[in-house]
Protein backbone atom coordinates (compact mmCIF):
# COMPACT_ATOMS: atom_id res chain seq x y z
CA UNK A 1 0.00 0.00 0.00
CA UNK A 2 1.13 3.48 -0.83
CA UNK A 3 1.95 6.09 1.80
CA UNK A 4 0.76 9.53 0.76
CA UNK A 5 1.96 11.20 3.94
CA UNK A 6 -1.62 11.48 5.15
CA UNK A 7 -4.42 9.02 5.66
CA UNK A 8 -7.96 8.39 6.85
CA UNK A 9 -8.42 9.60 10.39
CA UNK A 10 -10.14 7.60 13.08
CA UNK A 11 -13.63 9.01 13.58
CA UNK A 12 -14.43 10.52 16.96
CA UNK A 13 -18.13 9.84 16.45
CA UNK A 14 -19.79 7.39 18.81
CA UNK A 15 -21.41 4.87 16.50
CA UNK A 16 -24.15 3.49 18.68
CA UNK A 17 -24.96 0.79 16.14
CA UNK A 18 -21.57 -0.75 16.76
CA UNK A 19 -21.36 0.00 20.49
CA UNK A 20 -20.96 -2.85 22.98
CA UNK A 21 -24.01 -2.58 25.24
CA UNK A 22 -23.35 -5.86 27.06
CA UNK A 23 -21.75 -4.25 30.12
CA UNK A 24 -24.73 -1.94 30.52
CA UNK A 25 -27.10 -4.88 30.48
CA UNK A 26 -25.04 -6.96 32.90
CA UNK A 27 -24.56 -4.19 35.43
CA UNK A 28 -28.20 -3.07 35.25
CA UNK A 29 -29.25 -6.67 35.92
CA UNK A 30 -27.09 -6.98 39.03
CA UNK A 31 -27.33 -3.40 40.27
CA UNK A 32 -30.58 -1.84 39.06
CA UNK A 33 -29.79 1.51 40.68
CA UNK A 34 -27.19 1.93 37.93
CA UNK A 35 -30.05 3.06 35.70
CA UNK A 36 -31.12 5.83 38.06
CA UNK A 37 -28.25 8.24 37.31
CA UNK A 38 -29.30 11.56 35.79
CA UNK A 39 -25.76 12.85 35.36
CA UNK A 40 -25.82 15.68 37.89
CA UNK A 41 -22.09 15.18 38.58
CA UNK A 42 -22.28 15.41 42.36
CA UNK A 43 -20.24 12.19 42.51
CA UNK A 44 -17.49 13.71 40.42
CA UNK A 45 -17.54 16.94 42.39
CA UNK A 46 -16.90 15.09 45.64
CA UNK A 47 -14.59 12.38 44.28
CA UNK A 48 -11.18 12.19 46.00
CA UNK A 49 -9.48 10.34 43.17
CA UNK A 50 -10.91 12.62 40.51
CA UNK A 51 -9.05 15.61 41.82
CA UNK A 52 -5.69 14.05 40.98
CA UNK A 53 -6.54 11.69 38.13
CA UNK A 54 -8.87 11.75 35.17
CA UNK A 55 -11.43 9.65 37.03
CA UNK A 56 -14.99 10.87 36.49
CA UNK A 57 -17.75 8.57 37.68
CA UNK A 58 -20.51 10.48 35.91
CA UNK A 59 -18.71 10.16 32.59
CA UNK A 60 -17.78 6.55 33.28
CA UNK A 61 -21.40 5.55 33.81
CA UNK A 62 -22.36 7.30 30.61
CA UNK A 63 -19.54 5.63 28.66
CA UNK A 64 -20.90 2.25 29.74
CA UNK A 65 -24.37 3.31 28.58
CA UNK A 66 -22.92 4.30 25.20
CA UNK A 67 -20.88 1.11 24.98
CA UNK A 68 -17.50 2.88 24.89
CA UNK A 69 -15.70 0.23 26.94
CA UNK A 70 -12.13 1.05 25.93
CA UNK A 71 -12.26 4.36 27.71
CA UNK A 72 -13.96 2.73 30.71
CA UNK A 73 -11.18 0.20 31.08
CA UNK A 74 -8.54 2.93 30.89
CA UNK A 75 -10.08 4.79 33.80
CA UNK A 76 -11.75 2.32 36.14
CA UNK A 77 -8.67 1.46 38.19
CA UNK A 78 -8.27 5.09 39.23
CA UNK A 79 -11.22 4.78 41.65
CA UNK A 80 -10.06 4.37 45.27
CA UNK A 81 -13.44 2.98 46.37
CA UNK A 82 -13.81 5.49 49.21
CA UNK A 83 -17.56 5.68 48.60
CA UNK A 84 -18.09 9.41 49.00
CA UNK A 85 -19.93 9.38 45.68
CA UNK A 86 -22.51 7.04 47.13
CA UNK A 87 -22.92 9.30 50.14
CA UNK A 88 -23.79 12.31 47.99
CA UNK A 89 -25.75 10.69 45.15
CA UNK A 90 -29.29 12.20 44.98
CA UNK A 91 -30.59 9.22 43.03
CA UNK A 92 -29.37 6.53 45.37
CA UNK A 93 -27.06 4.85 42.88
CA UNK A 94 -25.01 2.17 44.59
CA UNK A 95 -21.90 3.62 43.01
CA UNK A 96 -19.34 1.46 44.78
CA UNK A 97 -21.11 -1.66 43.70
CA UNK A 98 -21.20 -0.32 40.16
CA UNK A 99 -17.43 0.26 40.20
CA UNK A 100 -16.81 -3.20 41.65
CA UNK A 101 -19.00 -4.77 39.00
CA UNK A 102 -17.28 -2.85 36.20
CA UNK A 103 -13.89 -4.07 37.45
CA UNK A 104 -15.07 -7.64 37.76
CA UNK A 105 -16.74 -7.76 34.36
CA UNK A 106 -13.95 -6.06 32.49
CA UNK A 107 -11.46 -8.51 34.06
CA UNK A 108 -13.69 -11.35 32.94
CA UNK A 109 -13.51 -9.89 29.41
CA UNK A 110 -9.72 -9.51 29.84
CA UNK A 111 -9.87 -5.92 28.68
CA UNK A 112 -8.88 -4.42 32.02
Amino acid sequence: MKDFGFGIKKSGVIDLDKADMSLLREIAAEEPSFLHCFYCGTCTATCSAGKYTGFNLRRLQLLIKRGQLDEVSERISECMLCGKCQWVCPKGVNTRHVVMLVNKKLHARKIC
Partner: peptide
Protein backbone atom coordinates in the same frame (compact mmCIF):
# COMPACT_ATOMS: atom_id res chain seq x y z
CA UNK B 1 -1.84 22.35 3.83
CA UNK B 2 -0.61 18.89 2.94
CA UNK B 3 -0.40 17.61 6.50
CA UNK B 4 -4.09 18.45 6.92
CA UNK B 5 -5.19 16.41 3.95
CA UNK B 6 -6.06 13.41 6.09
CA UNK B 7 -9.03 15.47 7.27
CA UNK B 8 -10.12 16.08 3.70
CA UNK B 9 -9.62 12.42 2.78
CA UNK B 10 -11.55 11.24 5.85
CA UNK B 11 -14.59 13.31 4.89
CA UNK B 12 -14.60 11.87 1.39
CA UNK B 13 -14.13 8.38 2.80
CA UNK B 14 -17.14 8.91 5.06
Amino acid sequence: VKSNRGYSLSNTHK
